[in-house]
């Protein structure tokens, strides 16, 4: 595997019971690349994202992040499942932002951001607070440190969630429909935070319906449907002149 690759997925299959959700996904994400995953609901894009973070276990295929096999260790040509502690260590390097934010409601914005630093990385509280404050400033929430999630708008909550992920200093950030649960007027502030992150050189995979964001920020666009990659390429290209009928139908509905 090339040094320039952050994610390499080869023939990933995933089923829930008899329902096969991923039917052989193969794709690559370079370091510093921003990839947008689009497609109709039920196409498996969220499931694929969750597999990268090992929140879901794949049934077959090879999934590597930063030259490390996800969820397994290879020795003598056999795959051995990782111990929970090893799997947890892998997840530290992979940030994830959820559609419903999933902030911890019993903690303030700042405590949310530093929770991983303190509980996982065992950084001392003073240092964590300094870094956490800096991160919240970066997403434009310097004045909301002591607010509980219930007292923040959806857009603010999602920006706290982004800061919380960044606190772990991830090499890869996954976004699972980060703006789908937001009121329309709040979408912009979250996309701006993501754009700033993309410009800072972060490798990102974004499941989204925001084609404007895909066109403007993404380096590549992948269209998934029915558990397979239908089409991928330069976002401008794909959005302007999709090659496949299914892509065309989908885009005509969302654009």
């Amino acid at each position: 595997m090339s040094e320039s690759l952050m994610v390499s997925a080869v023939d990933i299959h995933k089923s829930f019971g008899t329902n096969e959700v991923l039917k052989g996904i193969t794709l690559e994400v370079k370091r510093g690349e921003v990839m947008c995953l689009v497609g109709p609901s039920g196409s498996g894009k969220s499931t694929f994202l969750r597999c990268i973070n090992h929140l879901e276990r794949i049934n077959s295929g090879r999934l590597m992040v930063d030259n490390q096999l996800i969820g397994y260790r290879e020795s003598n040509g056999k795959l051995h499942e990782l111990k929970p502690s090893e799997a947890a260590a892998q997840r530290v390097g992979i940030g994830m932002v959820f559609q419903k934010f999933n902030l911890f409601p019993h903690m303030t914005a700042l405590d949310n951001v530093i929770s991983g630093m303190i509980r996982v990385q065992k950084i001392d509280r003073a240092t964590a607070i300094a870094e956490g404050t800096e991160l919240l400033k970066r997403v434009g929430l310097a004045d909301k440190l002591d607010h509980y999630p219930a007292h923040l708008s959806g857009g603010q909550q999602q920006r706290v969630a982004i800061a919380r992920s960044l606190a772990m200093k991830p090499k890869l950030m996954l976004f699972d429909e980060p703006t789908s649960a937001l009121d329309p007027e709040l979408v912009g502030e979250v996309l701006d935070a993501m754009k700033e992150l993309a410009q800072s050189g972060m490798t990102m995979i974004v499941v989204t319906h925001e084609m404007g964001f895909a066109r403007e920020v993404a380096d590549s666009l992948v269209f998934m449907d029915g558990g397979v990659v239908v089409e991928s390429g330069d976002p401008q290209e794909v959005l302007r002149s999709p090659k496949h009928e299914r892509t065309r139908t989908f885009l005509s509905k969302v654009l």
Binding site: N53, L55, P84, S85, A88, A89, R91, V92, I94, G95, M96, F98, K100, N102, L103, F104, S115, G116, R119, V120, A161, R164, S165, M168
Partner: peptide
């Protein structure tokens, strides 16, 4: 909410 456990897990918490 299940999302709480997922968020914590994705931060690398055991």
């Amino acid at each position: 909410d299940e999302g709480q456990e997922e968020a914590a897990t994705s931060l690398g918490m055991s």
